Simulated assay, not measured.
Amino acid sequence: MERLIIALQKSGRLREGSLELLKECGLKTDYRDGQLKIVTSDYPAELLFLRNSDIPQYVSDGVVDLGIVGSNLLEEDETPVEIIQALNFSQCRLSFAVPKASGIQTAEDLQGKRIATSYPNSVRKYLQQQGITAEIHPISGSVEIAPSLDLSDAIADIVSTGNTLFQNNLREIFPFLYSEAVLIKGPDLAPEKQVLLDQLLFRIQSVLAGNENKYILLNAPKEKLSTICKILPGMKSPTILPLAVEGWISIHSVVKKKEVWQVVQQLKSEGAEGILVCPIEKMVS
């Protein structure tokens, strides 16, 4: 029986999000620390836990069929793989940072400076685009300590919350590359496995759509229906049901998660009552 072989990060911030997404897609992923392989019993897939930096090459070489990595990694090593789906988790940014007392404020201020980073190719590409010449010092880890050891004037590193910069007496200047988890595949996938991939993508997209939207229910005077329909973006049109109370209706629709509060306030101002906002587990289009 054909199985999709999917490479996941062995350790790091992406592993938990990857396992949670696959679980929501119906793949049984009972994981224990140190485990390097999971064969799912409810979907034809095999999960391999690999070193993050090895995943793109394994996918490109056809050793595994798919991988979940940060898009920043692909920008850095330029391995020939195809991004087939952005996964909307593990968002972060690659930023320049300097000691708090530094006078460096802008990209132009990096001219001639020493920059320590674990992402030398990404930094080099950005500086070239800006016409800036600087000394790039590749460091494999603990980049934040470089300025305090007088190894660099600035660093370029992944920033999520900014806590690590704060703890090392650094301040972020500006981001120059944004990243999130992505699903990748290599150049050649057997037709049988392509069928499985299409099924998995369908599940992933349904889960992501559910996460990005909310189900909204409300009661409103019937004469307000036209106005309320203009407020609700919906999918095609809202569901409208009569209430036992004469002249009142119940309206059901779907709203983008990021727009919920704005929509709710507008609905309230038009006389809507009993507004409920509910999560959506899956949304199939």
Rank of each mutant, 00 (worst) to 15 (best):
L50H: 12
S53N: 08
S53G: 12
D54N: 10
P56H: 06
Q57K: 12
V59R: 00
V59T: 14
D61Q: 14
G62Y: 10
V63H: 08
V63I: 15
D65A: 06
L66F: 07
L66M: 09
I68V: 15
I68Y: 00
G70S: 14
S71G: 12
N72S: 14
D77T: 13
E78Y: 10
E78N: 09
V81Q: 00
I84G: 02
I84P: 00
Q85I: 00
A86Y: 15
A86H: 15
Q91Y: 15
C92T: 11
S95P: 05
F96W: 04
A97D: 03
A97R: 06
V98S: 03
P99C: 07
K100H: 15
Q105M: 07
D109E: 08
L110A: 05
G112I: 03
G112S: 07
Y119N: 06
Y119A: 06
P120K: 05
N121Q: 13
S122K: 03
V123R: 00
Y126A: 02
Y126T: 04
L127S: 04
Q128A: 12
Q129R: 14
Q130H: 04
I132V: 12
T133D: 09
T133N: 09
A134C: 00
A134I: 01
P138N: 07
P138V: 09
G141Q: 12
G141F: 11
G141A: 11
V143K: 00
I145N: 00
A146R: 01
S148L: 10
L149F: 05
L151Y: 10
A154V: 08
A154P: 04
A154D: 06
D157C: 13
I158A: 10
V159C: 15
S160F: 14
S160H: 14
T161N: 11
G162A: 13
N163V: 15
N163I: 15
T164K: 12
T164W: 02
F166I: 11
N168S: 11
N169M: 13
N169Q: 13
E172D: 11
I173S: 06
F176T: 02
F176A: 06
L177Q: 13
Y178G: 14
E180V: 04
